[in-house]
Amino acid sequence: KTEWPELVGKSVEEAKKVILQDKPEAQIIVLPVGTIVTMEYRIDRVRLFVDKLDNIAQVPRVG
Protein backbone atom coordinates (compact mmCIF):
# COMPACT_ATOMS: atom_id res chain seq x y z
CA LYS A 1 0.00 0.00 0.00
CA THR A 2 1.34 3.43 -0.90
CA GLU A 3 -1.36 5.83 0.29
CA TRP A 4 -4.00 6.02 3.01
CA PRO A 5 -6.92 8.33 2.03
CA GLU A 6 -9.04 6.88 4.82
CA LEU A 7 -6.79 8.56 7.41
CA VAL A 8 -7.67 12.16 6.50
CA GLY A 9 -9.26 13.73 9.59
CA LYS A 10 -7.88 11.07 11.96
CA SER A 11 -5.42 11.72 14.79
CA VAL A 12 -1.67 11.37 14.31
CA GLU A 13 -1.52 8.42 16.70
CA GLU A 14 -4.30 6.56 14.89
CA ALA A 15 -2.66 7.24 11.52
CA LYS A 16 0.73 6.01 12.72
CA LYS A 17 -0.81 2.80 14.02
CA VAL A 18 -2.57 2.04 10.72
CA ILE A 19 0.44 2.90 8.55
CA LEU A 20 2.84 0.82 10.65
CA GLN A 21 0.47 -2.17 10.43
CA ASP A 22 0.56 -1.91 6.62
CA LYS A 23 4.20 -0.87 6.31
CA PRO A 24 6.23 -1.73 9.45
CA GLU A 25 9.45 -0.29 8.00
CA ALA A 26 7.89 3.14 7.42
CA GLN A 27 9.72 6.18 8.72
CA ILE A 28 6.84 8.49 9.65
CA ILE A 29 7.44 12.24 9.69
CA VAL A 30 4.82 14.63 11.10
CA LEU A 31 4.72 18.15 9.62
CA PRO A 32 2.31 21.10 9.72
CA VAL A 33 0.23 21.38 6.54
CA GLY A 34 1.90 23.74 4.07
CA THR A 35 5.45 22.86 5.11
CA ILE A 36 7.94 22.97 2.23
CA VAL A 37 9.65 19.60 1.82
CA THR A 38 12.34 18.10 -0.39
CA MET A 39 11.19 16.28 -3.52
CA GLU A 40 13.36 13.16 -3.38
CA TYR A 41 11.33 9.95 -3.30
CA ARG A 42 12.00 7.46 -0.49
CA ILE A 43 10.13 4.17 -0.35
CA ASP A 44 10.51 3.99 3.44
CA ARG A 45 9.10 7.47 4.23
CA VAL A 46 5.53 8.56 4.90
CA ARG A 47 4.89 12.22 5.68
CA LEU A 48 1.87 13.12 7.78
CA PHE A 49 0.69 16.68 7.18
CA VAL A 50 -1.40 17.81 10.12
CA ASP A 51 -3.73 20.70 10.91
CA LYS A 52 -3.65 22.84 14.06
CA LEU A 53 -5.50 20.10 15.99
CA ASP A 54 -2.91 17.46 14.97
CA ASN A 55 -5.36 15.69 12.69
CA ILE A 56 -4.31 14.42 9.27
CA ALA A 57 -4.97 17.17 6.71
CA GLN A 58 -3.70 15.52 3.49
CA VAL A 59 -3.66 11.95 2.19
CA PRO A 60 -0.55 10.23 3.63
CA ARG A 61 1.62 8.78 0.84
CA VAL A 62 4.87 6.86 0.56
CA GLY A 63 7.66 9.09 -0.67
Rank of each mutant, 00 (worst) to 15 (best):
G34Y: 04
Q58M: 15
E3F: 05
F49P: 02
G63L: 09
R45G: 13
L48D: 01
Q21T: 13
L48F: 04
T2Y: 10
L7M: 05
K10R: 12
I36S: 15
K23Q: 12
P32L: 05
K1G: 05
K10H: 08
K16L: 04
D22C: 07
G34T: 08
P60Q: 01
D44K: 06
E3N: 07
V33K: 08
V8A: 04
A15P: 00
Q27T: 11
V46W: 01
A57R: 08
R45H: 15
K17D: 05
I43H: 13
E40P: 10
L20T: 10
T2L: 11
I36W: 07
Y41T: 13
V62Q: 07
L48Y: 00
N55M: 14
W4V: 01
E6W: 04
L20P: 02
R45C: 15
E40D: 14
D44Y: 06
P60C: 03
V12K: 07
V37G: 14
I19Q: 01
D51S: 02
I43G: 11
P24M: 02
E13L: 10
E14S: 08
A57P: 03
D51R: 00
P5C: 02
K16Q: 06
F49W: 12
Y41P: 13
Q27Y: 06
V59W: 03
I36F: 11
I36E: 15
I29G: 03
V12I: 08
V33I: 11
V18W: 06
W4A: 01
Q21N: 09
E25T: 12
R61G: 08
E13N: 11
V30R: 03
K16F: 05
D44F: 04
P60E: 04
V62R: 03
V50R: 04
T2I: 10
V8G: 01
T35Y: 04
K10T: 10
I28S: 02
L31V: 14
V12N: 01
V59T: 13
F49V: 08
E6C: 03
N55C: 11
D54W: 09
Q27V: 09
E6F: 06
K10S: 09
R61F: 11
D51N: 08
P32S: 07
Q58P: 00
L53T: 13
Q21A: 13
E13Q: 11
I36M: 14
I28M: 08
G9H: 02
V37H: 13
L7D: 00
K23N: 13
A15N: 01
V33E: 12
Q21V: 09
G9R: 01
Q27S: 11
V62N: 04
A57K: 07
W4I: 00
D54L: 09
K52H: 12
V18K: 11
K16N: 05
G63H: 10
S11C: 07
G34W: 06
V18H: 09
E40F: 05
V12L: 10
G34I: 00
K52N: 14
P5N: 00
T38H: 12
E14V: 12
S11M: 04
K1C: 06
I56Y: 00
T38K: 15
P32F: 03
T35N: 10
Q58K: 13
D51H: 01
P24K: 06
T35G: 12
E3Q: 07
T2R: 09
P60I: 01
L7R: 02
M39V: 12
A15F: 02
L31C: 13
T2E: 11
P60W: 02
L20H: 14
A26T: 10
I29V: 15
A15I: 00
V46I: 11
T35H: 09
D54H: 07
V12Q: 07
V46K: 02
E14Q: 11
K10F: 08
I28P: 05
V62A: 12
I29A: 09
R61S: 12
E40T: 07
V46G: 00
R47L: 14
L48H: 01
V8W: 01
K52R: 12
Y41D: 15
W4F: 04
T2M: 14
L48N: 00
W4T: 02
I19W: 00
V59N: 01
D44Q: 08
V46D: 01
I19V: 07
V59Y: 02
V50S: 04
T2G: 09
V62E: 07
V46E: 01
I56R: 03
Q21M: 11
P60H: 02
G63K: 13
G34N: 14
I28K: 00
Y41I: 08
R61A: 12
V33W: 05
K16M: 07
L20V: 08
R47Y: 11
P5F: 00
A26H: 04
A57C: 09
I56E: 02
V8Y: 06
V59C: 10
I19Y: 01
N55T: 13
V12Y: 04
V59A: 07
A57N: 05
D22S: 08
R61W: 08
E3Y: 06
R61N: 08
K52C: 08
D22I: 02
I43A: 13
E13T: 11
V37F: 09
E3D: 07
K23I: 12
G34S: 11
Y41K: 14
V50E: 00
N55V: 10
E25V: 04
E3K: 06
V50P: 02
V18A: 11
V33M: 11
I43C: 10
K16E: 05
S11E: 05
V37S: 15
E14H: 14
P5Y: 00
Q58N: 10
Y41S: 15
K17S: 09
K52L: 09
V8S: 02
E6V: 01
V12E: 03
V62K: 01
V30Q: 04
K1I: 12
V30H: 00
T38Y: 06
E25I: 02
V62D: 04
R42G: 13
T2K: 13
V33R: 07
Q58F: 10
F49K: 00
P24V: 03
I29F: 08
V37L: 09
K23D: 06
M39I: 09
V30E: 06
A26D: 01
I56Q: 04
R45N: 15
T38C: 08
E6A: 05
V59M: 06
A57V: 13
V18S: 09
R42S: 15
I36T: 15
V12T: 06
R45I: 14
E13H: 11
Y41E: 15
G63C: 12
V33L: 11
L31Q: 13
V18F: 06
A26V: 13
W4L: 01
K1Y: 09
P5W: 01
V62H: 06
M39K: 12
K16T: 07
R45P: 11
T35W: 05
A26C: 11
V37Q: 13
V30M: 05
Q27E: 14
P32M: 07
I36R: 14
G9S: 03
V30C: 06
T38G: 14
V37R: 13
I43E: 15
V12W: 05
